[in-house]
Simulated scan of single mutants.
Amino acid sequence: MKPIAMRSSEAQSRRRAYIVAAILFALILIVFFISMNTGQIKLAPQDVLGTLFGFGTAHQELILFKFRLPRIVISVLIGAGLAISGCILQGITRNALADPGILGINSGAGLVVALYIAYFPLTSAAPVFLLPLLALLGAAATAALIYGLAYKKRDGISTTSLLLTGIAVTAGINAAMIVLTIRLNPADFQRIATWLAGSIWGTTWKFVLALLPWIVILIPYVISKARTLDVLNLGETTATGLGAPVKSEQLKLIAASVALAGASVAVSGGIGFVGLIGPHLARRLVGPRHRFLLPVTALAGALLVLVADTVGRVILPSEVPTGIVVAVIGAPYFLYLMARSKA
């Protein structure tokens, strides 16, 4: 049996996690409702409520159900997906700076998606549902390349070499993206530029349905692996000594991280830093145990992207891409973490 002090500490951690999760969920609901009211065409709160219950005009239903709600739902989904992806990478690598955007996974997924939307129309349902699969291929290829370049036969893979290799590969992919964009016609160039800025461009229910299965299947799977992540976070030697199948579990979790990041990027565009900020914020609130950390990370990421998207739609007369708003928050935080890690 567990000592009384240990059981008491676990109960306190669980209670704190429940309280934090409830607060974050309440904030998401509040921002969700505010976001339904805001935009270039404003809807009063009573109009939003009336429209939700079927008493709105045809114009109000068009604005709310066709344009705003899909985008709001997608913001929540991609925020949760990117944040969980970053949390997995930070747990496996034991590196506070690990993030699918910084390591190049987002860029790899984005390059494949950009190639596709530049040369093929998205007028039918099939291409929309194909986007997460294409993004997964790009993200997986990039992750394999980074892992292969960073791996050393004698020393294995270090977090520093993984981070530096990821940054270098990201630079190469961004260069390839520039070459791609300058060869496009003006209309296609505008589409890719909008995507690169992190403007949530998949704003129909088709994109919601394309992304939803990846989120509702993979996030519960990752949460079920919370104890495994706790063990892996102790280091490969310790985890192996405790009897954990380190290599196979790492591959499964990395595959889940890549899939979450790729599927999210496929409909969100180049939004970075969510996988960095979400886990850090959650870790400060509930501690490092992944059974509490992962759900709170998902809520924190969802709240971050939803707030950024809402602010981007109201801060200026012309819309500011969500990725830029997140970057304004994330870039200084990344520099802070870099400085702190060197201290």
Score class of each variant (00 low, 15 high):
Ile200Ser: 03
Ala118Asp: 13
Gly275Tyr: 09
Val73Tyr: 02
Val325Pro: 14
Ala140Ser: 15
Gly241Ile: 10
Ile88Phe: 01
Ser9Ile: 13
Ala302Phe: 13
Ile192Val: 15
Pro245Glu: 07
Ala261Arg: 10
Ala44Glu: 14
Ser8Met: 11
Ala331Met: 10
Gly79Arg: 04
Thr51Gly: 02
Asp188Lys: 12
Gly79Cys: 07
Ile19Tyr: 06
Thr160Gln: 09
Gln250Glu: 10
Ile271Trp: 10
Phe334Pro: 14
Leu145Asn: 04
Leu82Asn: 07
Thr310Ile: 08
Ala266His: 09
Ser257Ile: 10
Ile72Ser: 02
Glu10Leu: 14
Leu136Asp: 09
Tyr221Phe: 14
Thr93Asn: 04
Ile78Lys: 07
Pro127Asp: 13
Ala187Tyr: 09
Ser8Ala: 14
Gly312Val: 12
Ile84Arg: 00
Phe207Thr: 10
Gly198Arg: 08
Leu49Asp: 02
Ile105Gln: 02
Trp201Ser: 08
Lys66Asp: 12
His59Cys: 00
Arg183Gln: 13
Lys225Ala: 03
Pro127Glu: 11
Ile84His: 01
Met338Glu: 09
Gly172Lys: 00
Arg289His: 11
Pro3Phe: 01
Ala58Leu: 05
Gly323Arg: 08
Ile102Ala: 05
Ala44Pro: 01
Gly312His: 04
Arg191Met: 10
Val326Lys: 09
Leu89His: 01
Pro245Asp: 06
Met36Asp: 01
Arg7Tyr: 01
Ala96Arg: 14
Ile105Phe: 11
Phe53Leu: 09
Val314Tyr: 00
Leu27Tyr: 04
Gly108Ser: 03
Ala141Ile: 15
Val267Asp: 07
Ala176Gly: 13
Val73Leu: 11
Leu122His: 06
Gly323Leu: 06
Gly330Lys: 07
Tyr119Phe: 15
Leu52Ile: 14
Glu61Ser: 05
Ile78Glu: 04
Ala5Met: 12
Phe33Arg: 04
Ala114Tyr: 05
Ile254Arg: 00
Val305Thr: 15
Ile63Gln: 00
Ile167Phe: 00
Asp188Cys: 01
His59Ser: 07
Gln40Ser: 09
Pro127Leu: 05
